[in-house]
Amino acid sequence: MLSMRSAPAGVGLDSNAKRQNSMKVLVTVKRVLDYNVKVRVKADRSDVDLANVKMALNPFCEIAVEEAVRLKEAGVATEVIVVSIGPKAVQEQIRTALALGADRGIHIETENSPESLSVAKLLAKIVADEQPGLVILGKQAIDSDNNQTGPMLAALTGLSQGTFASEVKIEGDEALVTREVDGGLQTLGLKLPAIVTTDLRLNEPRYASLPNIMKAKKKPMEVKTPADLGVELRAHTELLGVEPPAERKGGIKVSSVAELVEKLKNEAKVI
């Protein structure tokens, strides 16, 4: 079903086994509305209602954590550092990531959840401090659905990027990232250090075990502020309002298959 088209031989890369043996992996996690909870727009339509609803680790971030932990288990990574940005409550998600196998946490405390570019700027400082060999982020958060932070971080750090990853392999000085693109899969070789964002099929995250949840409580967590990192948060957008999606209305009944095909061809123009 699939045909493989090979690229010409890659650009010259010297393998650097040393990096591989001392590679830190940085993973980012976001606290979002649990995917099982129905979203409800506030009565005044200012935003969605998040009062007393269940919050959880963004599913794509969970996949990022899993991938990082697997790299560590495979002996490729030496340490997995997890970062989250937001109010104190996000420490719960950092603890979840620690229970899944990350080694230590960094909480950048902000009043709200900052915009993607601000998040990328904060993360860029952490990257500068920690010098990870690989940064793994979720491709998007399921609340804002922006799909921005990974490439923005790559731009700010001047690093390579592999978005929508369904497979990540570290070979020498390079990360081979298979990407889920429209119409198929694409594999890129990324010079390390690299920024990778996860897609759904990258892995199936494990469950945190009870002993690991207890151990996670004792793992180190550093708290920093944007001021500590020398980043000034700036708004690039203003949310004017939120509304529920328009309800679909029923259309017409057709009397025959022939009429259906005719309508789809000539009226809806979808076949």
Binding site: M1, L2, S3, M4, R5, S6, A7, G10, V11, G158, L159, S160, Q161, G162, L176, V181, G183, G184, L185, Q186, T187, L188, G189, L190, K191, A194
Partner: peptide
């Protein structure tokens, strides 16, 4: 930028996306 290189692609040839 010489940061990344194309390695290959698998085009979904199947009509079943």
């Amino acid at each position: 930028a010489a940061l990344s290189r194309f390695v290959g692609e698998e085009v979904a040839k199947s009509d079943r996306p």
